[in-house]
Design a protein around this nucleic acid. Sequence first.
DNA 1: ATGAAAGCGCTAACAT
DNA 2: ATGTTAGCGCTTTCAT
Lengths: 338, 338
Amino acid sequence: MVTLAEVARHAGVSASTVSYVISGKRAISAGTRERVRRSIRELGYHPHAGARALAGSRSHIIALMVPLRTELYVPVMMEIAVTVARAARTHGYDVLLLTGEEEPDAVRRVVGSNLAEAMIVMDVALDDRRLELLRSVDRPSVLVGIPADAAGLTCVDLDFYATGAVCVEHLAGLGHREIAVVGEAAAVYERRTGFAERTLAGIRERAGQLGVRMLHRPCEGGYEGVSAVLSRILDERPGTTGLVVQNEAAVEPLLAVLRQRGRAVPEDVSVVAVCPEEVATQGSVRLTSVAVPAQELGRQAVEALMARLAGRPAGEVLLLPPSLTVRDSSGPAPAAGV
Amino acid sequence: MVTLAEVARHAGVSASTVSYVISGKRAISAGTRERVRRSIRELGYHPHAGARALAGSRSHIIALMVPLRTELYVPVMMEIAVTVARAARTHGYDVLLLTGEEEPDAVRRVVGSNLAEAMIVMDVALDDRRLELLRSVDRPSVLVGIPADAAGLTCVDLDFYATGAVCVEHLAGLGHREIAVVGEAAAVYERRTGFAERTLAGIRERAGQLGVRMLHRPCEGGYEGVSAVLSRILDERPGTTGLVVQNEAAVEPLLAVLRQRGRAVPEDVSVVAVCPEEVATQGSVRLTSVAVPAQELGRQAVEALMARLAGRPAGEVLLLPPSLTVRDSSGPAPAAGV
DNA sequence: ATGAAAGCGCTAACAT
DNA sequence: ATGTTAGCGCTTTCAT
């Protein structure tokens, strides 16, 4: 293995000089710097990560905690994870993948062992059991998602409250007066996932303000679930002309079931989805939707974490504004009574 | 930070004793061991990862290279990745997440810096440009996927050749004499992805042996693509009664398009899919399918890697046997001429 | 602008 | 069965 000392010898300088050339922490004459850089290149030198972490007490690693229960919004999570890794690299950091289940122990372990300098936590519940620990461990962290009590925590998320509101505004603007929300699976609400509740709150509130009637029903993905939920909705509120869907796994079944029942989209019923762009654009109908900006979330999470590592205090909450794209699934409300 | 030395003092033993209690590399009297363990617990000691790596030249970290182009079979990749992380932990290893794009440099970096002891590479192409590097770097690696030339490499994968054969056998057994393969997107074949080609080869060969006519058409995901491909297939071979689908993103659209054309499944046409269980069971039709065993692949990849780290030589290729589950999408071929 | 040298916390010979 | 000790390769004072 090529060591710093070997590089130093090869370049005819001291070890500390090589170290400083690499870190840039003190002025080095142009000549020396070049000589050292050449030696590094020629010898194919890579600083020993462990030694670096030991001497400098910085591992250049951040931990990424991915959710316990996958299956749901997997593609979004994957995209965030990959983006985080990419973005971290641009700051000289590598990413350690922690899976949900080990949970509190995993945090203690990577922190206690100085393996990770900081961490990004995905899939945060409103009353997440990890919060206390995160607040206590004296290592910067950034949550993707917003818990009920975000005091002392740095968070990044799509503004789901505004997202809900925007969906209602769009439908109301098209003349819809009765809408229904085909929600996430019941389990998602049970574990008090912030984004689901916030979206719903945004919808409910704006609906109230705009005089739009609204009904919410949780919904499992898959055809049977969607079919059942849609039946209930149309039974209770036959006048429903606008649908908001958040559950990715319900989007395609929903369209199929509507088709099957002879309900034309968007002539009879308009659909607005909250989902990744691919789902909105690659389905059987190009959906009017608010995109979940996975990449932007990943990037912002890393930026926020780097700021924390650089000394910026915790507590910031960054909400990305939603952006609704009109496509083919929404249109004017059908004339009443028709 | 709590150090080994502090634990040693607290337990009234020497540093090396503590180290050996932890590593189990030499016999320690039960009494001493217990005392040390208690001290470790009471002080909340965690060995410093960097120091451990430096002194022991083992980082207890493996690298996981995830694919460059995601989007495709994302859920499978995610499941493998998470399983790898989980399985690695049971061996005392953490997982470093490397994204495709940095590629050869990333390998050199984590190897050169002794950050990772070994690596798992996903999404391997038949003529992958990473292979040469992997063979040269003198660090164990395991590929998930099988390149054209696997000499000197350890690989794990579903036996896609057998998978293709099994699909044909199933259809042939039901009396189907003319089948078509709705394949992966053209890009997948262009980059010479092993699993796609192998599946096709398996289908083609067994079809030949069993006297089944077969036609293959690459297919993009989404409705338009599927619709176009299906038209071409039925134009060219109106007698087609069996369909094999490998592209996850084509499965649901395919069923919708068939429905739309009035082709009943499985009465008029049987469908066999190669996809994750969730896709097979949660769609509009419960599909007869060969599951891609993501978790098993992740686990086996880790086991193979641990074996390599323990000294087992490279070169093994582990093919998981396919298992076809009959569900509602396949049935007897319709009587000819009807 | 550069060098010398003292650790960082641990492992693994080498003792006994 | 346990203790002593010499590094592992780097960062960072402290010197000059």
